[in-house]
């Protein structure tokens, strides 16, 4: 009896000590800021004044009914989302090839993953020089072939595609590595059995590999939604949201609302709206993905 209690106490002690610090950290750095975010979203706080005036749902109404620029910025986020979505099958295929199906696969794996580990600001700076209209590499190449220059970052019709290209260059590596890890965790006997049965590489991929890596695909799709809707650093560094707000994403708009236009209340409401959009899109995507059972 005494021993049983002793064990229970020890268990409780370990539980409390192990959980106390993480709980405090999560409360301090996640729960408390989240509560604060929600509270501020119902105020017209300018980020500095000691008083926070309660304005009810005004900020949310303004975002939904009276801020066309917010919806334009979401459209820009859509370009990143669609770009990455289109690229996912290509990433899958590259990962499939890199899974011991090409020579020097180890070297290619490293090359594929390298962009992801480079600092995003450095990547953005590098591409700024590639895209520049003054002595930029890409335009110089076009001129070499007697073609007209392209306003990679200056044409409001093109700028979002240029930035999506940078985002693809930077983030495709991590998707490929995730797919590759999924491929390598597959039991080899299934593939071997299919080879004996005479299945082609495509059939192996479609009937065996794909169904077995479904959870990883789901994760990559979720990462895509989250990443596309929260993209900030690439447009902020490369164009600052310009020209004339043409490449402003939702997060760039939120940051500018808070720090440039001194409206923290509205910016917090925008952050909550973004959170809700991500949740809704993820649920829709999950439902669509699982339609086939």
């Amino acid at each position: 009896m005494f021993k049983k209690n002793d064990l229970k106490m020890q268990k409780n002690f370990v539980l409390v000590t192990f959980l106390f610090i993480p709980t405090i950290l999560i409360s301090l750095f996640m729960i408390y800021p989240l509560i604060n975010l929600v509270v501020i979203s119902f105020t017209s706080w300018d980020g500095l004044s000691p008083t926070k005036t309660f304005v009810g749902l005004t900020n949310f109404k303004k975002i939904i009914f009276d801020s066309p620029e917010v919806w334009v910025s979401l459209k820009n986020n859509g370009v990143y989302f669609v770009g990455h979505l289109i690229f996912i099958p290509i990433e899958l295929f590259i990962a499939f090839l890199l899974d011991k199906r090409v020579r020097f696969s180890k070297m290619f794996k490293t090359i594929t993953f390298l962009p992801y580990i480079i600092n995003t600001v450095a990547v953005a700076c590098m591409f700024m020089f590639l895209f520049s209209s003054q002595d930029g590499v890409l335009n110089s190449m076009l001129q070499f072939f007697h073609m007209d220059k392209i306003g990679w970052l200056s044409d409001s019709e093109i700028v979002n595609y240029s930035l999506t290209g940078v985002s693809l260059w930077k983030f495709s590596g991590i998707h490929i590595i995730l797919f590759l890890a999924a491929f390598q965790s597959l039991p080899t006997d299934m593939i071997e059995a299919s080879i004996i049965d005479g299945a082609s590489t495509f059939k192996q991929f479609y009937h065996i590999v794909l169904p077995n890596i479904k959870p990883v695909i789901e994760i990559v799709l979720f990462l895509n939604i989250r990443g596309a809707l929260q993209i900030f650093d690439i447009p902020y560094v490369m164009t600052g949201g310009g020209p004339n707000h043409a490449s402003e994403t939702f997060t760039v708009q939120t940051i500018n609302t808070a720090f440039q236009y001194q409206n923290f209340g509205l910016a917090c409401a925008m952050a909550i709206v973004l959170m809700i959009i991500i949740i809704i899109f993820s649920i829709i995507q999950k439902k669509l993905f699982n339609l086939k059972g």
Partner: peptide
């Protein structure tokens, strides 16, 4: 200011 002033920024402006 060049054929595409929207295509370069301050760093290149002062370098020029």
């Amino acid at each position: 200011s060049g054929d595409d002033p929207l295509g370069y920024g301050w760093d290149q402006q002062r370098a020029m």
